Simulated scan of single mutants.
Amino acid sequence: MDVRYSFLNTLEHYPCELIRGLWTLQSLDLQRTDAGVSHERDRWLAMHMQSQSELLERLADEQIRALKSHRSQLIELQGVRKRCEAARRRQRRQMQHKTDKLTIKLSLNSSKKSKRNVAEAPKVQNVKSAEEEPEQTYCFCNNVSYGAMIACDNELCPREWFHYGCVGITKPPKGKWYCSAECRKQA
């Protein structure tokens, strides 16, 4: 076996089209090195090798583009995941520190005499501050607003706003956008 091609045995993790093309290229090159190859056959093998190498180059370029696209999607999803985890941590912290403030109203008016000498039970009311009210949630993930979001064009949509990552888009679509077939029918 030619030492130049021993690396082909280590390419099992590459797409099968690339491996098949490399094996074909190796076979053609080995046929060209045979001593009894006619000049016409050698030219045919050389042309076939050239077309095979061009095909391999296109396949490799497509694979590189696909990997870059996949990488950018993974980076974007990682950012969405970090923001989502941060929002969940904030919610947990708010829930841990959440304490209802109690207001007690006592009626100690001594001029009114009741039939009993026992004071009435105090009235207790829960008072919530504005900062303790939960943030409004959106989207299928039922999470708070963060990052890029898109609105459903159905005015009666129950969720209305959606995170780009949750609906699988990276930029605003052209024209109207609906979150589901139901919303499209309603609109």
Rank of each mutant, 00 (worst) to 15 (best):
N142M: 12
H13Q: 09
I64W: 11
T170P: 00
Q96C: 05
R43F: 03
S38T: 15
G79L: 12
M95L: 14
A121M: 11
R89S: 06
L74G: 02
A187T: 03
S72I: 05
R92A: 10
K174I: 04
W177E: 01
T33Y: 02
W161S: 04
C84M: 12
L30T: 04
L25P: 01
S27F: 05
A148C: 04
H97D: 08
G175D: 02
F7W: 05
T103K: 09
M49G: 14
G36P: 00
Y164N: 03
S129F: 07
I64Y: 12
A60L: 15
K105C: 11
A187W: 00
L108S: 06
T137K: 15
L11M: 11
S6R: 09
K185F: 00
C179F: 04
N126S: 13
R65I: 13
L59P: 00
S38H: 06
R71C: 03
V3N: 10
M149P: 01
W177K: 05
K101M: 12
S6D: 11
E40L: 15
N154K: 01
I150E: 10
E160V: 07
T103W: 04
M49H: 07
E54Y: 03
L59F: 03
A87E: 08
L11D: 00
C16K: 08
C139Y: 02
G21I: 06
D34W: 00
N117G: 13
A35T: 09
M149H: 02
A86E: 15
Q186R: 15
Q136A: 12
W44R: 14
A86R: 13
D153Q: 03
H48A: 13
H163D: 05
S6H: 06
S180H: 04
H70G: 10
C16D: 11
C141Q: 06
E40W: 08
S53W: 05
H97E: 10
Y146R: 11
H39T: 12
R43T: 09
N126T: 15
D42W: 08
K115P: 01
Y14C: 09
L77D: 09
D153V: 03
L22G: 01
C84W: 08
M95T: 05
H39D: 10
I169W: 02
Q73C: 07
P15C: 05
S53I: 06
K128S: 11
S27W: 08
C139R: 00
N154I: 05
C166G: 02
K101A: 10
K176H: 03
R89N: 05
A35G: 01
A86Q: 14
I150Y: 02
D34L: 14
C166P: 03
A60E: 12
D100P: 06
C16G: 00
A119E: 13
E133K: 15
P122C: 09
